[in-house]
Amino acid sequence: MAGTILLETKNLSKRFGGLKALDRFDFLVRHGEIVGLIGPNGSGKTTFFHVVTGILKAASGTVMFGERREVLTALPPHRITALGIARTFQRQRLFNQMTVLQNVLVGAHCRTCSGLFGSILRTPATRREQKVVQEKATRLLALFGERLLPRAQDPAWTLSYANRRRLEIARALAADPLLLLLDEPAAGMNPTETRELMRDILSIREQGITIVLIEHDMTVVRGICDQVVALDHGIKIAEGSFEEVRNHPSVIEAYLGRRAKHA
């Protein structure tokens, strides 16, 4: 498994009116990698996640996923999740009025199958599935030690900022993804929490889950990413190891700007 291509995009483009959010973007992730996606704000990173997960439709290009290289470009989001891609959001999108546990249970939706009538009749199969999925959700909350588990029955909106980020990850993991897309997981976290997060992400990779993460915090990118891809204005400007990308002239220019010509 390791080393084979898990996700590949070719010529992926997306426009918003006149703005090219993604411009012929080629991207590749192999099994077991952690790939960091960096770039200034508005460079198309989150748009890339939206397109891969099917929330936004690509203008052109293809997204291929898995061993059978299934084309995702025309699939609705729930089918893509079922194939094995889960994500978190840059601005948190938890189900705020639901409990912490229920948030994770929703994440397992595509891995469970109880239907309307099974739920009404509460058939033995439904009850069995409920028990299994509750145990799974509890196990996922336990990944974050004592951070989430004691709060399982509290509404999600009562959680602290960092805990909400953790819950988003737990919810995404409930979908049993092969590929996990994390959109700025460390945003708003203090240095201790960030270190903890890096450990958590590495332990998720240990479970065989491939990860792509968007991150502005370069200690995270340097610390855990095998590969780094830099985007600017929807165009891939550099890729390689963290050091290679960081010293790439285009990346420096994208972040810091070009020296004025007639100064």
Partner: peptide
């Protein structure tokens, strides 16, 4: 309930 809370997130959750 997930749809009620956030439809986009609900779709992405499968």
């Amino acid at each position: 309930q997930a749809i009620r809370e956030d439809e986009v997130a609900a779709r992405v959750m499968g």
